[in-house]
Design a protein around this nucleic acid. Structure first.
Length: 933
RNA sequence: GCGGCGGUACCGAAGCGGUCCAACGGGUUGGAUUUAGACUCCAAUGGCUUAGUGCCCACGCAGGUUCGAAUCCUGUCCGCCGCACCA
């Protein structure tokens, strides 16, 4: 039989397109709006996108089968810098960029066109649409669009969003520190660094020690230790700059000057000074007025802080080591310097730094660094400031630190310097520092009121799975103001300031609202689209007659939005919880009334390939089209969704995909061959009822799983289990299956599989002779009355008996038995077991149990007491489903033809009490004694 | 450091106080079928053992609670993800 999954897929995709099956408009049914963050169109879709979209699609198809009017829209994201940057690299002829395009299948002659960012956007949105159609996504393609000013209608929508936020006071101007490349004059995000991933700006305090007109700004992370300063350090081998900083004469290292300039200080270089020239000066400690000397230390680096540091030998191991070295060299003026202790820590001595450096002889020893951390950790967590700190005495470091910083700043004794603790190197190989960017617009996610509203939205939200809630709560709480404008890149202009573009994560938060009306909005003349129009269609505000737009169109859009909103399911990878998905919540609560707040969010793990992280550079990478071409869309979808669920990573494994391909082929063949033939129907046998039981409990479980987007469970219960039971049913009836039952299985199985493998299931449905289109059919209902656990128990008992027989045969080394006799446990044992179960629930005392039992079984005292002893010893051995002897005998008699066939010998079923065979006594309820001959 | 999620057989993974066996899928091994292979079917896949359906060991590690623990408690070790100006 010709079975070509690719051909089947193409055929159904053509049909769906022609019949506009997935173009959804409001009607009388309950609605369900699903979506997923649109992809950034700078390359081909890869298998990682696949999983997220697949979940949305499977859920959409399921809800459709449940009778809902489902809308699944899609669009393309082009906002931001990467596409522009890539186009620029093509223009510069950068080899890796060109190569990567070639790897995506573009010929050398086509590369030229990629100099133009618009070509990227057009090409990759087109290619992605092609891939997603080939994947069989149930998307309403009428609603697709592209972001940025290339789509003026979208830009107008985004402007409405920003004006709305601004009106509500949720956007404000401010300044903030960024990691900055002084060569490219750009902020340098993690992905644009060649070194220093994850390093972020941290606040250092520059405490101003003064001497006759000069300032020595000592950079420190521990400003509270200023009370224990004995001297300050400069590195004699460095070059320092004497500079005018905000009108004062500062001494700083060369690199520090650029940092100060970029952190909003007025800076002018006056002259260069050798470090060694500075040594020997006396400077005044700003907190106590003490004069301390400037001493030389080689551990001081030019790159961190200012190249000037204060020395607190009591609490800083480096300082102590350097000081001790000088004293050992009899360096002038150091002999009288004594460490000054200012922090008391229980369990540590007066000078924790001195204790910490035991065995370390100089500041170059790497252990000095560990010692520093050790001391700091202890002091920070359990230290108390001593009397010497004046008004801060008795405070913990945690309490005192922010107060000391604030006080020093307000008294003009210190300023803050943002610093990178570890080096950060830009992709252009320049060392970065922190710059304070001003004139920047912020979304005030840090605002408490806004957070509260977002938290409220979160509380009313269905999460798939529920266990991400903790993460969301944390992020809502932790989120700070977000810089939402950029000077570079593609996007929409900030409506009130054309010099800025709206940043890419900020223009993609409430756009699902845009999906609901985009195809209608296309009919409105561009010039007529403005904030007032959106106020009317989204919020019902204003007078529609003043908009100069066809009232029918306006009210259509208004109704469409109100019908589809809120979003019932928005799904993405777990990496977006800490930004996009949370922004999505914040912006919805700000822009829309509560009834339109998000109703459901789904989060999933990543895709690995062969259990290894996907990585382009390591070649462990697959595009969507590669896997579709190799395995067909149905197999890819099934393989990925069957692999894992919740937040676990799914794995793409070609071996299991191949195995699933075969399973699908087998099902296709089975369904077509067995459906609606003239098989026996009529009265149901036990085994038929068993099969119905299995089918209906599988439907029940699969349905429950589908409701929670637990697709792996749904596939396991709704496909693997049904298939397994069907095989057993086939074997158990020697192929004489009940035709009605069989038909029901075939229909239900095809529907259960439909959300995952829509093409092949549609094909089967059609070939079964169904007039309806599968994708609009009804999800199978389970019939509670057909779920009868006792059927399962007796069938299990039978199959366990078969297992036991086979084991006995093996042990007895009988290869070809002539006859097998099964002795069924006497009824009194059934009663005994039931009684025991009752008693054991109350007590484990053997005496009491014995007492409770033996009255009833006096005439079998010996046998009964042996059983009681055995079961009290291990209560888990009591047969749970002890059925009466008659029923067990009947159950086995029913199975005799099957057992005969399987074991290839005659089978006899005998009641225990009817036999003289000694082994017969071993029978237990549900566990017949076995004799083989 | 802070926050989140986890450690179960060869691999992935379910189980979350007792449901006579630690599901299900993949892999591996043996057998049946086949001219052969593929497919399909049956069986095995921690150890031991036997004319008897059994015993023992195992759910990161160590303790504890309980008649009974993969599951509950305490401690401990180890992974993965995120910590932002950006898709």
């Amino acid at each position: 039989m010709a079975f070509d999954l690719h051909k089947i897929a193409r055929r159904w995709q053509r049909k769906w397109k022609a019949q506009k099956v997935y173009e959804s408009d409001p009607d009388g049914r309950p609605k369900f709006l699903v979506c997923t963050p649109y992809p950034y169109v700078n390359g081909l879709l890869h298998i990682g996108h696949t999983y997220t979209y697949m979940r949305v699609d499977a859920f959409a198809r399921y809800k459709r089968l449940r009778g809902m009017n489902v809308l699944f829209p899609f669009a393309w994201h082009a906002t931001g810098t990467p596409i522009e940057a890539a186009a620029k690299r093509v223009e510069e002829g950068e080899p890796t960029q060109l190569q990567s395009l070639e790897l995506m299948g573009f010929g050398k002659d086509q590369l030229e066109q990629f100099k133009d960012p618009i070509h990227w956007i057009k090409t990759f949105s087109r290619e992605a649409e092609r891939d997603l159609r080939a994947y069989g996504m149930a998307i309403d393609w009428r609603r697709q669009f592209i972001t940025t000013s290339l789509n003026p209608r979208y830009s107008k929508f985004i402007k409405w969003q920003f004006n709305t936020l601004k009106k509500k006071g949720l956007i404000a101007k401010g300044e903030h520190p960024v990691v900055w490349c002084p060569r490219e004059l750009m902020p340098v995000g993690d992905h644009a660094r060649s070194e220093g991933e994850g390093v972020m700006p941290e606040e250092m305090v520059l405490i101003k020690f003064r001497t006759n007109g000069h300032v020595f700004p000592c950079a420190t992370f521990r400003p509270e230790t200023v009370f224990g300063v004995t001297n300050i350090w400069v590195n004699p081998d460095l070059t320092y700059v004497e500079a005018s900083v905000d009108g004062e004469h500062w001494m700083v290292s060369e690199p520090a000057l650029a940092k100060l300039k970029d952190q909003k200080h007025e800076v002018k270089e006056l002259q260069r000074r050798k470090g060694s020239d500075l040594v020997g000066a006396k400077v005044k400690n700003p907190v106590d007025g003490n004069e301390v000397p400037v001493l030389p230390a080689s551990f001081v680096s030019a790159e961190t802080g200012t190249g000037v540091v204060m020395s607190v030998p009591a609490h800083a191991p480096f300082d102590y080591l350097a000081l001790r070295e000088l004293q050992q060299q009899n360096y002038a003026g150091t002999q009288d310097i004594k460490p000054v202790s200012l922090v008391a820590v229980e369990g540590l001595g007066e000078f924790p730094a001195i204790d910490a450096v035991k065995g370390i002889t100089n500041a170059k020893d790497p252990r000095a660094k560990d010692a520093t951390q050790e001391v700091y950790k202890k002091e920070f967590h359990s230290g108390k400031l001593k009397d010497i700190t004046g008004k801060y005495k008795g405070l913990s470091i945690q309490e005192a630190k922010p107060r000391i910083i604030a006080d020093l700043k307000s008294e003009g004794k210190a300023v803050v310097l943002f610093e990178l603790i570890e080096p950060v190197i830009c992709r252009c190989l320049t060392r970065c520092h922190v710059r304070i960017v001003d004139n920047q617009w912020f979304l005030k996610y840090g605002s408490q009121e806004w957070k509260q509203e977002a938290m409220k939205a979160l509380q009313g939200l269905k999460l798939y799975p529920e266990k991400v809630r903790g993460q969301f709560e944390y992020v809502v709480d932790w989120l700070r103001d977000w810089a939402c404008t950029r000077e570079f890149g593609l996007g929409t202009d900030l409506p009130w300031d054309k010099n800025w573009k709206i940043e890419s994560l900020s223009d993609s938060t409430i756009y699902p609202a845009f999906y609901t009306l985009v195809h209608t909005l296309k009919k409105v003349p561009l010039g007529k689209i403005n904030d007032r129009l959106f106020d009317y269609v989204f919020l019902g505000e204003g007078n529609p007659d003043e908009l100069g737009v066809d009232r029918v169109l306006l009210d259509k859009m208004k109704a469409e939005f109100a019908y589809w909103y809120p979003v019932d399911f928005r799904n993405s990878g777990k990496d977006l919880v800490q930004n996009h998905l949370t922004f999505y919540l914040f912006n919805h609560v700000a822009c829309f009334p509560e009834k339109f707040w998000p109703a459901g969010i789904g989060v999933n793990g990543y895709v690995t390939i062969g259990s290894k992280k996907m990585s382009k550079s390591k070649g462990n990478f697959k595009t969507l089209r590669q896997v579709i071409d190799a395995f067909s869309p149905d197999v890819v979808r099934l393989a990925i969704l069957a692999s894992n669920e919740e937040m676990n990573d799914v794995d793409w494994d070609s071996e299991s995909a191949e195995s699933l391909r075969q399973k699908l082929a087998q099902w296709y063949e089975f369904a077509l061959k067995n459906y609606g033939k003239n098989g026996q129907s009529g009265e149901r046998r036990e085994i038929d009822r068993w099969m119905e039981h299995q089918l209906h409990s599988s439907i029940r479980d699969a349905t429950k799983a589908m409701d929670e987007t637990l697709f792996r469970t749904a596939i396991q219960r709704g496909f693997f289990d049904v298939q397994r039971h069907l095989k057993w049913y086939q074997r158990r009836t020697a192929g004489q299956m009940n035709q009605e039952v069989l038909n029901e299985i075939i229909e239900a199985q095809t529907l259960l599989l439909a959300p995952f493998c829509p093409h092949v299931c549609s094909e089967i449905w059609e070939k079964l002779g169904k007039q309806s289109v599968l994708v609009s059919e009804k999800w199978p209902q389970f019939d509670e009355s057909k779920i009868v656990p006792t059927l399962e128990q007796s069938e299990d008992a039978m199959s366990r008996t078969l297992d036991d027989i086979q084991q006995v045969l093996r042990l007895a080394k009988v290869e070809h038995p002539k006859k097998i006799t099964l002795f069924v446990s006497a009824d009194w044992k059934v009663h005994l077991c039931r009684k025991l179960k009752e008693l054991l629930a109350q007590t484990r005392d053997i005496g009491q149990v014995m007492k409770g039992v033996m009255g009833e079984f006096k005439d079998r005292a010996q046998e009964a007491s042996a059983l009681v002893q055995k079961f009290v010893k291990d209560p888990s051995k009591v047969p749970l489903s002890a059925m009466p002897q008659d029923a067990e005998v009947q159950n086995l008699l029913d199975a005799v033809p099957f057992l005969k066939e399987t074991l290839n010998c005659s089978i006899e079923v005998v009641r225990e009490e009817d036999s003289q065979e000694p082994k017969a006594r071993q029978a237990l309820p549900g566990k017949p004694a076995i004799v083989v001959q």
